[in-house]
Amino acid sequence: MPHSIVSYVNESELLDAHRQELRRGSVVLASLLALRTPGYGYGLLEALDRAGVPVAANTLYPLLRRLESQGLLTSEWDTSETRPRKFYRTSQDGIRLARALLREWQAIDKALTRLDMEGPQR
């Protein structure tokens, strides 16, 4: 018997699950690209949402800290406003990595498009 962790009730749930899987890796790239101009947690969450790359808050906040510990982001506390916020900015390493990831992303896009074109039913 095949094992499935979740049994999907209908097709849209199945689509959601696969879409989530497909988008998961893009969050790092989107964050690195967006944070070339400094931003803070909630601001980035909204910016990514507006840009069409919605992320869950409980995924994004820990991710920012991880990218910082990997040296891909730098951070600074801004205490000039009433609410102190931690601002992140993509580091030089981060920018280099983002470029490499972006090339990868575009290569996947091209490859998938080509596969689609070669498909039997057009």
Binding site: G41, A57, Y61, K86
Partner: peptide, 10 residues
């Protein structure tokens, strides 16, 4: 600190 700010922003 960071989490408090994020929740307050939200």
């Amino acid at each position: 600190r960071e989490l408090r700010a994020a929740i307050a922003d939200d």
